[in-house]
Amino acid sequence: MTDIIDQHAPPRSDVVLDVRGLKTWFPTRAGEVKAVDEVSFSLTRGRVLGLVGESGSGKSVTGFSIMGQLEPPGRVVEGSILFGGRDLTTLDRESMRRLRGKRIAMIFQDPMMTLNPVLKVGTQMIEAILAHDQVSKAQARERSTAALAAVGIPSPAERLSAYPHQLSGGMRQRVAIAIALLHRPELIIADEPTTALDVTIQAQIIAQVQRLVRELGMTLIWITHDLSVVSRLADDVAVMYAGRIVEYGKAEDVLNAPRHRYTVGLIESVPSRNRPGERLRQIDGITPSLLALPTGCAFRTRCDAADAQCAAAQPLRTHGTHSHRCCHPVAAHEALR
């Protein structure tokens, strides 16, 4: 199998995360739901990967697979997730617990998946530090205060005494990000952390995340359906559809000269690309059921260019550092209207 790793692999000493042929399936009475099917990518230190796709494309399941936090009956059935030379799919629960929060952290869309509503912010942050580091409570409190200040929370020492319900939505998300940063992890997975926030707060948080990633040299996977966020934040973009990566490359290449017709559809669906009064563009049809995917290209049932060739398995085609799975790629001069 030709995969993204082979085509875009950076020097191995710089690789933080190396995902190869990942398959995450959910058994149901109707059959196997192939939520993630042969996904491969690698990330070097300090890079930001934008993992993009519609709801149900498999992007969040990819993040939970890396974190070892799949909800039963979901399971990784094949592939490897190499982090620091160790395959995370082979680690037991205790080994993964020691990694989570310390070397790998996740920021959720809903900050209340991180925060306990009945505990003060300071209590939760201090416990998170003491779970991995042997330091005094005073030192842990000092680190917690510094982490809150780093994500732009005013009067951080006072906020340690607050309960989550006493904070705004944007403030709670900043606290969740601060908790993820407490141990300066090598890898952070952010699962649509700004989706529920207004655009002003969203822009502030994205700017702060960019600054922290740059200053701390961390690697970031930003999972989102919002291409405007990806254009501001990501170094590389992986576009997912029906459990597979259909396009991958540097952000400027994928967003400015997309080759896969699904990527083109996503970009043209962004409202800001439409003239005032013009009908919003959209991708025809709906995502097929993961229980009954069409043979070959899963997008072919929604694609105007589909023909008999698209019913065959689509290998990854690579042009320089830009890859796609399409036998009728969009030419550069016609990619975007």
Rank of each mutant, 00 (worst) to 15 (best):
A149I: 11
L160N: 10
A150P: 01
S144F: 12
V135P: 00
A157P: 02
S168W: 03
I129V: 07
T145Y: 00
A150Q: 02
E158F: 11
Q166A: 04
I153L: 14
S155R: 13
S161D: 15
A131M: 14
A147H: 03
G152T: 15
A146S: 04
A162G: 02
S168I: 05
A162L: 13
R143V: 11
A138P: 09
G152W: 05
L130S: 05
S136K: 11
E142T: 11
E158C: 08
I153M: 13
V151M: 01
S168D: 10
K137F: 12
G169A: 00
I153R: 05
R141S: 06
G152Q: 05
L167E: 05
H132Y: 03
G169S: 08
A147L: 00
T145H: 00
P154K: 11
Q166E: 06
Y163L: 14
K137P: 11
I153Y: 07
Q139K: 14
H132K: 06
R159T: 08
S144M: 04
L167S: 01
D133N: 15
G169D: 07
S161F: 09
A157L: 09
L130H: 09
G169Y: 06
A128F: 03
H165L: 09
P156K: 00
A138D: 14
S168K: 05
V135N: 03
V151K: 02
R143Q: 13
P154I: 03
R141L: 04
V151I: 13
Q134R: 15
R141M: 10
Q166L: 08
D133T: 09
R141C: 04
S161V: 08
A131T: 11
L167F: 01
A146E: 15
I129E: 07
S144R: 08
S161R: 15
E158K: 09
A138F: 13
S155A: 13
I129H: 02
A149E: 15
P164L: 09
G169C: 03
S155E: 14
S144A: 15
L148P: 03
R141P: 07
L160V: 01
T145C: 10
R141A: 03
S168P: 07
P164S: 10
P154W: 02
S168G: 10
P154E: 00
R143C: 00
A150S: 10
A147E: 07
A146N: 08
V151A: 01
I129K: 05
Y163N: 11
A162W: 13
A157Y: 02
